[in-house]
Amino acid sequence: MSSLRHRADPRLDAYLDSARDCILDLGWRRTTLTEVARRAGVSRMTIYRAWPDMGSLLGDLMTREWVAVAAATRVAADDTTSPAGIAAAALSTVRALRDNELFVRIVELDPDLMLPYLLHRRGRSQEALIEILASEIASGQAAGAIRPGDPVLLARTLTLAGHGFVFSAMTMTDDRIGLTELDAEYARLITRTLEP
């Protein structure tokens, strides 16, 4: 059986739900495919047929989780083809990721799991988010609302800026500057970057 990225199988969602519960309860390091199988009420081999190891399962879980967050925040946005609309949707995504219980748990207990995606390579989740953003930028360009430029380059640039606001925003807050002020500057950064 192939990974979630290659097929839509509702059973895999149930297994990913069990994995999510395990990570929330135990953390990544203490979660095993055996424990996921136990919680899902299936044999170990059923889980091993879907994912050869915890790394591939985590990749599918993070992709499902983060892309769902981005999709939900964009559905809630009024307009994602104007600079201000894209900024509002991006800020909503950043805030939702910062508050996501799976994200928070991984960062609290196993932050090193995120390092490859920040230092060495883009993951499927990042690629999916960049694709969504590039599509919105291209639509805005076609309408004349967004400045010319390679939509993928612009999307990658904004995603790179977003990493800091997801992972490090709290390091820049204190009694003088709060998260609300920083978030407003992130929205302004996006808006000004995209304006014609």
Results as ranks from 00 to 15, higher is better:
residue 38 R to F: 06
residue 57 L to H: 01
residue 59 G to R: 15
residue 47 I to V: 15
residue 21 D to L: 14
residue 76 A to P: 01
residue 95 R to F: 01
residue 97 L to R: 11
residue 102 L to S: 01
residue 66 W to A: 09
residue 35 E to K: 15
residue 19 A to F: 09
residue 48 Y to M: 13
residue 94 V to H: 05
residue 21 D to G: 10
residue 10 P to S: 14
residue 77 A to R: 12
residue 38 R to L: 06
residue 101 E to V: 13
residue 69 V to I: 14
residue 31 T to L: 05
residue 26 L to E: 04
residue 43 S to G: 15
residue 106 I to F: 05
residue 43 S to T: 11
residue 102 L to G: 07
residue 44 R to Y: 15
residue 83 P to V: 09
residue 69 V to M: 02
residue 85 G to F: 04
residue 77 A to Q: 03
residue 40 A to Q: 00
residue 9 D to S: 09
residue 91 L to S: 11
residue 81 T to Q: 13
residue 100 N to A: 13
residue 79 D to E: 03
residue 12 L to I: 08
residue 65 E to F: 08
residue 56 S to W: 09
residue 11 R to S: 14
residue 84 A to V: 07
residue 98 R to Q: 04
residue 84 A to Y: 05
residue 68 A to D: 14
residue 94 V to G: 12
residue 81 T to D: 11
residue 23 I to S: 04
residue 40 A to W: 00
residue 71 A to Y: 00
residue 42 V to N: 12
residue 28 W to Y: 14
residue 104 V to W: 00
residue 8 A to E: 15
residue 80 T to M: 06
residue 26 L to R: 04
residue 98 R to Y: 02
residue 94 V to D: 07
residue 31 T to G: 10
residue 10 P to I: 06
residue 56 S to Y: 09
residue 9 D to I: 11
residue 42 V to P: 14
residue 75 V to Y: 01
residue 9 D to E: 15
residue 71 A to G: 01
residue 52 P to L: 13
residue 11 R to G: 08
residue 26 L to W: 04
residue 74 R to H: 14
residue 66 W to Q: 09
residue 10 P to R: 11
residue 72 A to T: 07
residue 47 I to E: 09
residue 104 V to Y: 00
residue 30 R to K: 08
residue 95 R to K: 14
residue 15 Y to W: 13
residue 27 G to Y: 01
residue 8 A to K: 10
residue 35 E to P: 08
residue 40 A to N: 02
residue 106 I to L: 15
residue 73 T to C: 04
residue 92 S to D: 13
residue 95 R to M: 09
residue 66 W to H: 10
residue 29 R to H: 10
residue 106 I to P: 08
residue 104 V to F: 00
residue 52 P to D: 10
residue 21 D to A: 14
residue 82 S to W: 03
residue 79 D to P: 02
residue 32 T to Y: 02
residue 44 R to H: 15
residue 98 R to F: 10
residue 104 V to M: 00
residue 62 M to K: 13
residue 46 T to E: 06
residue 99 D to L: 11
residue 42 V to H: 08
residue 9 D to C: 15
residue 38 R to Q: 08
residue 79 D to W: 03
residue 66 W to F: 14
residue 43 S to M: 01
residue 67 V to G: 04
residue 13 D to S: 14
residue 92 S to M: 05
residue 52 P to V: 11
residue 90 A to E: 13
residue 10 P to H: 11
residue 97 L to F: 07
residue 66 W to D: 03
residue 53 D to S: 12
residue 84 A to L: 07
residue 16 L to Y: 04
residue 31 T to V: 07
residue 91 L to I: 04
residue 90 A to I: 02
residue 24 L to P: 06
residue 43 S to R: 05
